[in-house]
C-alpha cells in the first residue's frame, strides 16, 4: 500500500472533522429530504399523489442537494492537502524521500476523494427512502452516483492543483471555491443570459421541434457542459440517450481533471521554493 495513503487516512480520521463533518452532512441531508417530502405531499389533499412521484421528487432533491453539499465540502479536503505540508514544512522531507511525485499526489487524491465518497456512502440510507416510494430504479441511482463521483474526482484534482500552486491553505481553498462558483453559478448565468438574448432575437420564428435542448445553438449551450448540475441532470436520461450530452460532460470533466493532475505533478516536480 502506498505509504502516503495510509498516512493521510490515519491523519484525516484523527481530526475532529473526521466525525463532525459526516454527522453535520447527514443532518443537513436529512433535513433537506424531510423538507422535500412534506413539500411534495402537502398539496391540500393527499389523494391523487402517486408514491412514485414522491420517490422521484425525493431522489432528485437528494441528488442535487448531495452534489451541492459535496461541492462545498470537496475543497476543504483537497485544497489544503499539499499546502499543509508546505505550512508545516514537511514537503521537503516527502520530496527527498523515495516517494515519487505521482505517489504523493495519489496518496493525497485518494484520501481526499475517499473522505468525500465516505459522505456519499453514508447518505445511502437516506437515499433508500426514495427507493421505498418507487419511481426510481437502480440505473438512475448508479448513473447519478457515477456522475457525482466523476465531478468530485475532478474537483478534488482541481483542489490539489490549487494546493500545489499556492503556499497557504487559505489561498488554495479560496481559489478552489472560486472554481466551484465559476463552474456552477457563472456558467449558468452566462448560459441563461445568452439564451435570453438569443430567444428575444429569434422570437416569432416558430418554436423548436424535437429536443428543445439541442435546438439551442452549441455556442450558447457550451458553458453548461462544464456545469456539475447540468452534468447530473444529463445522467438522469435513459442509457441510450446519454450521448451526446452526458458523454460530452464526462469527457470535459475527465479532461479538466487530467489537466489538473498534470499541472500538479509538474508543480511537485519542479518547485522547491516552499
Amino acid at each position: 500500500m502506498n505509504p502516503m495513503i495510509r498516512k493521510e487516512l490515519r491523519q484525516r480520521m484523527r481530526e475532529r472533522r473526521g466525525w463532525l463533518l459526516p454527522s453535520l452532512y447527514l443532518v443537513v441531508l436529512g433535513a433537506v429530504v424531510t423538507f422535500a417530502y412534506f413539500l411534495t405531499t402537502d398539496r391540500g389533499t393527499t389523494t391523487g399523489i402517486q408514491g412514485s412521484a414522491v420517490g422521484v421528487a425525493l431522489f432528485l432533491t437528494l441528488s442535487y442537494a448531495q452534489l451541492a453539499l459535496l461541492l462545498l465540502l470537496a475543497p476543504i479536503f483537497s485544497a489544503g492537502s499539499i499546502t499543509i505540508e508546505k505550512e508545516q514544512r514537511t514537503l521537503a522531507g516527502l520530496l527527498t524521500s523515495l516517494l515519487t511525485s505521482g505517489q504523493i499526489w495519489w496518496g493525497k487524491f485518494v484520501s481526499s476523494l475517499l473522505f468525500v465518497l465516505l459522505l456519499l456512502v453514508t447518505s445511502l440510507p437516506v437515499l433508500s427512502m426514495a427507493f421505498a416510494f418507487g419511481g426510481v430504479g437502480p440505473w438512475e441511482i448508479f448513473s447519478a452516483t457515477l456522475t457525482t463521483v466523476i465531478i468530485l474526482a475532478c474537483m478534488s484534482a482541481i483542489g490539489l492543483y490549487c494546493s500545489s500552486a499556492f503556499q497557504r491553505s487559505v489561498h488554495a481553498t479560496a481559489v478552489s471555491y472560486a472554481t466551484v462558483v465559476a463552474i456552477t453559478v457563472v456558467t449558468a448565468i452566462i448560459f441563461f443570459v445568452r439564451l435570453a438574448i438569443y430567444e428575444s432575437a429569434n422570437r416569432g420564428q416558430g418554436g423548436a421541434t424535437g429536443n428543445i435542448w439541442y435546438s439551442i445553438p452549441l455556442n450558447i449551450r457550451a458553458p453548461m457542459y462544464v456545469n456539475p448540475f447540468f452534468f447530473l441532470t444529463a445522467s438522469f436520461a435513459p442509457l441510450k440517450q446519454l450521448y451526446p450530452a452526458w458523454f460530452t460532460c464526462a469527457c470535459l470533466f475527465i479532461g479538466i481533471g487530467a489537466l489538473a493532475v498534470a499541472l500538479t505533478l509538474r508543480n511537485l516536480r519542479r518547485r522547491g521554493d516552499f
Binding site: 491523519q11 514544512r89 514537511t90 522531507g93
Partner: peptide, 8 residues
C-alpha cells in the same frame, strides 16, 4: 526549519 507531523 524542518517540519514534523504533530499528530503522529
Amino acid at each position: 526549519q524542518p517540519g514534523v507531523y504533530q499528530d503522529m
